[in-house]
Structures are given as C-alpha cells and as structure tokens.
Design a protein around this nucleic acid. Structure first.
Lengths: 250, 250
DNA sequence: CGACATTTGTACGTATGTATC
DNA sequence: CGATACATACGTACAAATGTC
C-alpha cells in the first residue's frame, strides 16, 4: 500500500515559464524599475525558445504592468515602477462583467474613505493635516466658477487622506474605485442643474470632516465622511438601492 | 483662433486593436461565458493580421482571465465566466512590488470584514444567518482536532458574511486579501504551539459576532469582528506596527 | 543633420502534438 | 482506428522605429 504519490502533470506552456522567471526576477528585486530586460533575441537564447514565445511572454508581462517595450529600443524592454494600472484594469473588468452597480461602487468608496479618515484622524502628521486643509481651501475657492478645479481639489483631498491613513492598499483601492465611479457618472455630475449648490454643500461637509480630523475624533470624521459621500452620490443611485448605502450610516 | 483641437496620435499596436475588439465583445455581452471565439486562423482573416498578432492578443486576453485556449480544441478559445483571478494576480503583485506589510493587509481585512458584518447585520436574510451559524458550528466542532476543517469553516463563515453584505466588490476583495494573508503566514499559524487554544478563543469571538448579527446590532458586530481579527493576527505583526491596527478598534 | 546598426513589430511557412468526430 | 482541424512552437524575412556616431 501507499507507494509514491504521483501528482497530476500540469502541462505548462513555454511562454508561461518565461513569464514566471522574469516575474520572479522583478518581484524579488533582482530587476529594479528603470532596469532593462535583455533584447528579445538575447532572451530567446537564454530561455532557448523561439522569438514568438518570448514575445508572447512579454505581452503578458506588459499586460500585468511590469514591463514596457518600444520598437527600435536598443536596450530591451523596460522594467516599470509599480502602478496600479493592472489592478485598475482588472477591477474595471470586474465592474463590467460582474455587473457591479453604482450603488456597490459608491458603498465601497464609503467604506474605504470612512476607514481612511478614521485612521488619518488618529495617525496623521501636522504636514498631512495641512495638506488636507489646503485641498479643502482649494475646493472652496473653485466652487464658485471652476468645476474642474473643484474636482481636482476633491481628488487631492481624498488622496491626502488615503496617504495619511498609512495603508497603501487603501490608498490604491480608493484611487481605483474613485476613477471607476467618476467615469460612470462624470457626465451626469457635469450636467446637474444645481451643480454650484452641490459643490458648496460638499465644501461645507469637507470642512466639518477636517475639523473632526483636527480634533482627533476619528469616529466622528468617519461618520461625517460617509454621510458626505452619501449626500453627494445618492441622487445618481436608483432609489431602491439607496437603503444599502444608508445601512453604512449609523 | 481656436480651430480644430487635434489630439496627439498614439501609435497603437495591431494586437492591441484585436484585444480591444474582443474585450468589447465580451464586456458588452455579445460573447457570453462558455461561448467560443473563432479559431486563430479564422481570427487572422477577420482582423487581417498575422497569426503571431492574433496569438499575442489571445495571450493578453488570457492573462486578463477573459478567455482560455487549449491545443487541439476544434472550437476556438473559450470565453470564461468571470473569476477574480486577474484581480487576485494584480493585487498579489501589488503586495509584493509595493512591499505591502502584513499589517497593511490585516488592517485592510479588518476594514472589509468590519464593514461586511455591519451591512450583513442589517441586510441579512434568515437563510444567510443560518448559513453563518452553521459555519460557526463547524468551526466549533473542528476546533478540537481538525485544524484544516477549522480553517475551511472560518473561510465559509467570512464568505457567507461577505455575500450577506450584498456587495460583490466587498466579497471579491475579502476573498482575495484573505488568501494573500493566509499564504504569507499559514505556516506560522500551523506551527503555533497554543494553536488549539487560539482556535477555541476564535470560536468564542465568532459566537459573539453572530449573536450581535442575530440581534441586528451592526456597529457592535463590526467592533467585535475587528477585535477578533486583531486578536487572531496581532501575534504575527511586528510590535511597532500593531498600533496602526488598534487605531481601527474604537 | 544624415548614415548606420540594432531592435521591435509584423507576416508567413512549417513541423508536431492533441482533441474531436 | 483514421481523418481532420486545431493550438503550440520554431524559423525566417522584412518594414518601421530607435539610438549612435
């Protein structure tokens, strides 16, 4: 009885072996951002595969945001610094294929932003607090006549909060989900008839949030932040889905 | 002045055009999961590109988890049902390349799980509550002598909670981040000397959480849930990073 | 600025193993 | 079992792009 336990053989494509090895080299730090891979012809020698195989591997690595190759570049493909582009892409696909509703996306933002501001209220430095303040001031200044500036300042505020939370994962996800939401409804926001009033109310909300952060009251800041986001986006969410958003407001 | 506003020309590779078109067909629903793409030879005719170009495009689509192709398959590549595999991959890469700490990952789990349980407490159905209860019972039964069964039941519980939250994005992210965390420290958990005591304490915490859910007290359930996760993972987080986790406990 | 070598992007042909009928 | 169609992988070839002198 017993005997050797054989495992099913998983046939693995040649290009996958190439991808694995290059990926390993990058993630282990042996290949740093800005560094170059060998040229395609050099790679086909080192891996003893054909050029098509090398190229298929490079396409996969490129799709994952790890490298970029340009025609004619005498150096090989460039190792890229990390960007959440791949995460962004897969989450966008998720949003479309899994049919994520706007309500779910906004709810996720409320969760992330609420947590980020809670953490920021407790862990922020003075410099980070000042940065948030400047962003809110910029929102206030732009609310009257500069909708684009308002949006940019709003992004800057939430980005500063996410950074102050000290959690890079929260920061990246916040960024990704926000851009997805904005792409879904930026046209509707731009066309809102009472847009200026909305911006002014948003400024007021942000001022309340930052006051709570300054006071170090994390739970209050989180509550206010979620409420502010609800007020800003609820109008674009179907009525029967708003209850799920309100469930986050305590 | 003014005149037409020209946009910078972005040279776009042939394989990218192929990817775009197929992606569009899938995301729009024209190609449903289980459906088949034309064969490679057919695709090279339809797009009037070479075989290599078609194959590079297919590699990218495969890396994004949208299709799968097998050698010899008389039909073309298969359109896959959505899986968070691509999201998982890019988040794992993020964790390695951006050097996410275990503390950040656990903190993110606390945020997601806390929010999921808050929502679940308010939106759950009776059937979902029963499912969570069964999972906790299974944890209790396995705590004495079946560590693998305990882990599986624990996953089942958190998965049931995430589903009951009604937010698919929370569900997917919970799943992805949990598996990343487990891969990082499963060996340490398996080697813990007081493992049985840890499991028993975890069961107690889960029972408290589910009691709060049953009572419909979302904020309490969220607090307990975050506390439970902190107690379970804090030992594996460097001492000087634990404060960031405690900042989430109110 | 232009000539040059190198590299990538793309195309085409071929051989081989495999899945389906 | 054989026939057929397919994906995988290899090799070659040429045009376009890039960096260098």
């Amino acid at each position: 009885m017993g005997g050797p336990r054989f495992e099913p053989v998983r046939t693995v494509r040649a290009y996958e072996r190439v991808v694995e090895q290059v990926e390993e080299a990058i993630e282990s730090g042996a290949l740093a951002p800005g560094g170059r891979l060998p040229s395609e012809r050099e790679l086909m020698v080192q891996f003893s595969v054909s050029r098509s195989t090398v190229r298929e591997a490079l396409r996969v690595l490129q799709a994952r945001g790890l490298v970029r190759s340009r025609p004619g570049d005498p150096n090989g493909a460039e190792v890229l610094p990390f960007t959440p582009a791949a995460l962004h892409k897969s989450m966008t696909t998720l949003a479309r294929v899994a049919e994520l509703s706007l309500a779910e996306l906004v709810q996720f933002r409320m969760v992330l932003d609420g947590s980020a501001i809670l953490l920021a209220a407790r862990l922020r430095t003075e410099e980070q607090l000042a940065e948030m303040s400047r962003a809110v001031e910029a929102m206030k200044a732009a609310a009257a006549d500069d909708a684009d500036g308002f949006g940019a300042a709003d992004v800057a505020f939430h980005d500063a909060v996410a950074r102050a939370s000290g959690n890079k994962l929260i920061q990246v996800c916040t960024d990704v989900v926000r851009s997805i939401v904005l792409r879904l409804i930026s046209d509707k926001i731009a066309g809102a008839p009472d847009r200026e009033a909305l911006m002014r109310r948003s400024v007021r909300h942000h001022e309340e949030v930052i006051a709570a952060v300054r006071a170090g009251d994390g739970p209050l800041a989180a509550r206010l932040s979620k409420k502010a986001m609800y007020d800003y986006y609820a109008a674009y969410v179907p009525v029967n889905e708003r209850a799920a958003l309100r469930a986050l407001l305590e």
